[in-house]
């Protein structure tokens, strides 16, 4: 018997496809998310909107909170470690959690190196803004990707930008002559073998979700129609007027993303969405998507 293989790491992400992963900060919220049809929850102390508002250093959540959320639900539980903080990742693995998000939403501890994710039994998801970042994270062992978007803004513009960037670069690679892939790999700052693989397949070899700014059922369906495998919703649910209803509506819109009548139906009378922030009003040093390299 082989445990924690690459196939099982990538495979869990494949099982999450077409689903919604929701940020939760209490066991009660985790129950609401599970009840609404979330495929997994992200256990956090503060949602990104609050991290953004409160400032300071954002770290891994209290293990007690992560364990309490794990105990409250039967669906997979994810938790965030800071970029480069391999000991936070070791702690999360020791808690028996299902997936680690090495996340730019927390304050990075290493400004050059991400975690060497091959050393872990637990699978990792990492953020990306473009294909180069996506392939570098995979080279480090990420078994799942998510486009970063800009977390805690309720503004889906960056999620769209990042996903279109990744897809556009994949299409360009796919159309290249094999002689051109060496330079493409150099320009992407990514391993040649991965570049060659993506160029041949015309798609990423791992699951890629959208994250960062999804606040409405239509936002989720937009990302699904663009071609993501599923969505993370952070602050968008529990910072809205009626979290349980909004959570259910986003789950339904993610499944029926190609059916505008259903999206219209589930979007009716949802109450207030989270307050949105325009990206150009965020000071440059407070943009989370720029963290990670």
């Amino acid at each position: 018997m082989e445990m924690s293989t690459w196939t099982t790491k990538v495979g869990l992400a494949q099982m999450l496809k077409g689903g919604v992963i929701m940020d939760v900060v209490t066991p009660e919220q985790a129950r609401i998310a599970e009840e609404a049809g979330a495929v997994a929850v992200m256990a956090l102390e503060r949602v990104p909107a609050d991290i953004r508002a409160q400032g300071g250093v954002a770290r891994m959540s209290d293990p007690e909170l992560i364990a309490a959320i794990k105990a409250a639900v039967t669906i997979p539980v994810m938790a965030k470690a800071r970029i480069g903080h391999f000991v936070e990742a070791q702690v999360i693995e020791a808690l028996g959690i299902d997936y680690i998000d090495e996340s730019e939403v927390l304050t990075p501890v290493d400004e050059e190196h991400h975690i060497n994710k091959h050393k872990f039994k637990i699978p990792f998801v990492c953020g990306c803004r473009n294909l180069g970042e996506a392939l570098r994270r995979m080279a480090e062992g990420a078994a799942m990707l998510r486009t970063k978007g800009e977390a805690g803004t309720g503004n889906v513009v960056e999620a769209v930008r990042h996903f279109r960037a990744v897809q556009g670069e994949i299409r360009r690679l796919h159309s290249m002559d094999e002689d051109e892939l060496f330079t493409a790999a150099k320009n992407l700052q990514a391993p040649y073998e991965l570049v060659k693989q993506v160029a041949a397949a015309g798609r990423l070899p791992v699951v890629n979700f959208a994250a960062g700014g999804i606040a409405t059922p239509a936002d989720a369906a937009l990302m699904m129609q663009l071609g993501v495998d599923g969505v993370f919703v952070g602050s968008g649910i529990f910072k809205s007027g009626d979290p349980a209803r909004r959570a259910r509506a986003i789950v339904e819109a993610t499944t029926h993303y190609n059916d505008p009548e259903i999206i219209a139906e589930v979007s009716r009378g949802l109450g207030e969405a989270m307050v949105g922030i325009n990206i150009d009003q965020i000071p440059a040093d407070q943009l989370m998507a720029k963290r990670g390299w």
Partner: peptide
Amino acid sequence: RRNAYGSQLDSFEQ
């Protein structure tokens, strides 16, 4: 029985 072998860390190939 759901999740009969444990968490993701107990996923396996055989």
